[in-house]
Design a protein around this nucleic acid. Structure first.
Lengths: 349, 349
DNA sequence: CGTCGTGCAGAAAGCGCTTGCTAAATGGCT
DNA sequence: AGCCATTTAGCAAGCGCTTTCTGCACGACG
């Protein structure tokens, strides 16, 4: 039914070993023989059996990219960049690797299961993107898995995620704290004193770091941090919308709202607008990430640009062993404050 | 070095066969034995060797999802929905499948290569999303691959893509033509007579169908279709921005711009705004797809909503054999016109 | 009390490929 | 002409798992 290596060998009048070598190209084969084999492959429409090959060679060409939410452009952009470097098909010769993205949906269990599945497949490399869940047990479980993967020869790279010490993984970490701090400092510098903060889900490193940066800026300016001015939610538009309504309910004198990311900020804008408030005259709004659509908001969003594509590309290269690991296995990636129309001086009050 | 089935067997004092059966759970094993095996698995921290298993069983648990651009939420949303149904890890019991998304970047070669790679891996199912490239040679090559995949027992589903007859694949097709027509009819009904159209890349089914719908609406209204009012570009914001400038240069008396999708429409809005034109007072703008951010545009975007998540979920279920194929293997999915703030009556002129 | 059905476990034959080693040419030297 | 170094090809032993077939033991039944 299915054509095997042996069939090709028979047709080309050579041994299976030779066919294998022609296909893998890492062993001298006479030009004439090679051609004969290639012709047979073509005529028979032969397709290598991946599992068999992986089993025999004890390696596979699978590269896994784990993302928290594939429907979120934040991850889409990173995944796209990573994958472009992995080569996927169409990459540079020889390294024909299957880059696959796995959507964990932010669930710790799924993250672990995907890691196991990837381990099962003897993946060549794994890239984990985005914030991690801050549960000690889970973090330890993930660390253990990463260690095991590394031991098995799988290259592990973290992109936009805090380092996992002693796991043999390289990490490209976003400076969420610094970016968030710069953002809030900008607002404070403008004269804002009553700022609401819409945080992401609790127990996430990204959420915590951004919040810490925000608070650090407030503290530095001597502004008391009223816990009622912080609301937690998901990293999506809807959540920003609802959280804003809640913040307004708690204190309608807010002059600025800082959001966990751009999508959330967009939701905040919608809520403000519906509440009859102007941006930025009545309330300033700031996001984070600088996703493509942020510049199209009206007014365009003040935010912190994260070099998602660049970081992803670098992570991809490291995963392929095409770029050496950063010193100490850790590199931190800075965000850049983008001041745009959605933030301004607070109204006199 | 690595723990194998045999190691587990030795530890549990049973034969490898028994261990395999416990793990696969499709053969009676006494409870006490099972428990012993499970304990050994746990103690040894055993992880099944995927390739070996796939080789022996002649099947794998890989499901491939092909997308044109993973950084585009259009695909992200569909992929997410598909994957949620595949189960990925965490899906219903037994069906632990590795759903992976493959980014073709819109390149025909990569599409083909990914298909081959998936075939190599003996994938359980493959879902192709989004428009296809309209090159006869390539279409035939893809069809041939799909046929081969189907023969090998891989279930093939097309989602948001025109049917591929005689390939043994199921298709969920978006009614791009109908949606586009309704959209333009809406504009014409408002009184517009000079409409610009920003199309996607040529040679794509989606591009062509949407354009045809637009033209059909114009024709029905007796409006001459001036080719100078159509510009082709990519499916992204940038492209919309540039195309709009070009359209304006060609004819500054346009009263409406219909874009290939929402991202393009957003770019168009930016260009119009920078040109000092108001939306919709001076120029109406319409998009397509109704991605989440569209409602947040100011004014919010009139567009055609495509049930991306629903279609994806259905495609996923079909791919898993959990829902039967639509009659004839083809189902068409309708879009819904969403009239919002970005379209209005044209200025009197 | 012998026989048969049933439930559970093991032996062993692959699945299709890679690769270390060996063998056979080939050609260049002396 | 005889030898050795070089190429190039084949042999065969696995890689780790699944699965068919066989075998054993036990209780039930006539």
């Amino acid at each position: 039914m299915t054509v095997t290596l042996a069939d090709v060998a028979a047709r080309a009048q050579v041994s299976p070993a030779t066919v294998s070598r022609v296909l893998n190209g890492n062993y001298p084969v006479a030009a004439s023989t090679r051609e004969r084999v290639l012709r047979a492959v073509d005529e028979l429409d032969y397709v290598l059996n991946g599992p068999a090959s992986a089993l025999a060679a004890a390696t596979s060409d699978l590269v896994g990219i784990l993302v928290n939410d594939i429907a979120d452009p934040f991850f889409g952009i990173m995944a796209s960049a990573i994958q472009a470097e992995i080569g996927g098909p169409g990459g540079r010769a020889g390294g024909e690797r299957l880059a696959v993205v796995c959507n964990t949906g932010g669930s710790p269990e799924r993250e672990l299961t995907y890691l196991t599945l990837l381990q099962r497949q003897r993946a060549a490399a794994v890239v984990l993107t985005g914030g991690a869940v801050e549960d000690t047990a889970h973090a330890e479980a993930v660390a253990a898995k990463l260690r095991k993967l590394a031991q098995a020869g799988t290259r592990v790279v973290l992109c936009g995620r805090p380092p996992a010490p002693d796991t043999g993984s390289a990490a490209l970490t976003f400076e969420n704290r610094g970016g968030a701090r710069a953002l809030t400092e900008h607002l404070v510098g403008l004269g804002h004193r009553r700022l609401g903060y819409i945080a992401g889900p609790g127990e996430r490193t990204t959420t915590r770091h951004r919040l810490e940066g925000h608070r650090a800026a407030l503290a530095a300016a001597g502004i008391e941090d009223d816990p009622r001015r912080t609301v937690h939610g998901r990293y999506d538009r809807r959540s920003g919308y609802e959280a804003t309504l809640e913040l307004l309910r708690r204190d309608s004198s807010l002059t600025a709202i800082v959001a966990a990311n751009d999508s959330v900020a967009l939701g905040a804008c919608a809520a403000l607008r519906e509440s009859g408030l102007r941006i930025p005259e009545d309330v300033s709004v700031a996001g984070f990430d600088d996703l493509p659509f942020s510049i199209d908001a009206v007014p365009s969003l003040t935010t912190v640009r994260l070099p998602l594509a660049e970081a992803g590309a670098r992570a991809g290269r490291i995963a392929m062993g095409r770029e050496e690991q950063p010193p100490g296995g850790i590199a931190s990636v800075r965000g850049e404050l983008m001041v745009r129309g959605s933030t301004g001086v607070p109204r006199a009050s």
